[in-house]
């Protein structure tokens, strides 16, 4: 393999990685606050692509308006899911909330199958995302470098929000301790709701990027990215935003490189993320950037 091809793959890996990172943040924020896997995150990604599709098809929106429409609708949906399926279980054993999440995930998936049908649909491909761009010797489509740029801007925005605003402080406080946060006058219901909305908005952006990259959408496209991004979040250290970014990039780059360098293992591509997950959990169960929490006896 020559250097040029390596760069090409690297660019591709970074692009995929930034996409993973974007979605992984949603997981990590929700996990950070509620300590459970939002199994339905993948389905939120899937719905975001359908919202764009129908925005264009039914309301004849221009693509950019359809994107905004989808992000707003997806955010509201995320908020709604939390209200209906998770909020009533906040005092139940964590296993119940996990089961509920699995239920929501299957419900959305199959409801989509019923409503949208199983036949794949073509996602819009505005020409600005499909142009070939040449950097020196490396030829890539514009989506490959637009993805990391948009991801970078959003990451900056989220990090700023969490670290430098009052709302962000409330989020961090809620993540540390519900009861104390409540005593400090934080409306934790509002904060949790906001976290879901924000996480879903990021998932929507991720979903749209996903659609631009792999422009065939069907009701099951959310499952794999959903699981992989959860893995990215765990690898980086769940609950930790820089960790989710790191995990996302690691997974994206490693996956692309695996296929590029060991084409014989292409069939195992989807299993790779799980292998990585299991290795990380064994070597460092709290993830690369996660803190170790001692159990109180």
């Amino acid at each position: 393999m020559n250097f040029q091809l390596f760069l090409q793959n690297l660019a591709n890996g970074i692009s995929l990685g930034s996409l993973y990172a974007l979605i992984a943040i949603g997981y990590t924020m929700v996990y950070g606050i509620l300590r459970f896997i939002n199994f339905a995150h993948g389905e939120i990604i899937m719905l975001a692509t359908y919202f764009v599709y129908f925005g264009i098809l039914i309301f004849s929106m221009p693509w950019w308006l359809a994107f905004i429409f989808s992000i707003i609708l997806t955010s509201l949906l995320g908020m709604g899911i939390e209200k209906v399926a998770y909020k009533p279980l906040r005092d139940s054993p964590r296993i119940s909330i996990l089961i509920s999440a699995i239920g929501v995930s299957f419900l959305i998936q199959n409801l989509s199958l019923v409503i949208f049908g199983g036949r794949p649909k073509a996602f819009c491909q505005p020409s600005i995302f499909t142009k070939m761009v040449t950097f020196g010797n490396v030829k890539i489509t514009s989506i490959t470098f637009i993805t990391p740029i948009i991801a970078g801007i959003l990451l900056y925005f989220v990090t700023y929000l969490v670290n430098n605003t009052k709302t962000g402080m409330a989020m961090r406080a809620t993540a540390k301790d519900f009861d104390t946060a409540k005593l400090m006058g934080i409306d934790i219901d509002k904060i949790i709701s906001l976290t879901f909305t924000l996480g879903s908005a990021l998932a929507a952006v991720g979903g749209i990027m996903w659609g631009l990259r792999y422009p065939q959408i069907h009701p099951f496209i959310g499952t794999m990215p959903g699981l992989k991004c959860f893995i990215a979040a765990v690898v980086g250290g769940i609950g930790n935003i820089p960790g989710a970014v790191l995990g996302g990039f690691m997974l994206g780059i490693m996956e692309i490189m695996l296929v590029a360098f060991l084409p014989g293992l292409t069939g195992y591509r989807d299993a790779f993320a799980f292998v990585l997950l299991i290795i990380i959990l064994l070597v460092r169960p709290t993830g690369i950037l996660g803190e170790k929490i001692a159990e109180k006896v």
Binding site: I37, I278, L282, P285
Partner: peptide, 22 residues
Amino acid sequence: VLRLKGDYLAIATLGFSEILRV
């Protein structure tokens, strides 16, 4: 995987099931 608990165990066993399938 049994070194893990709760959600982590769930996702790791799900992962193994997927790996077996692959």
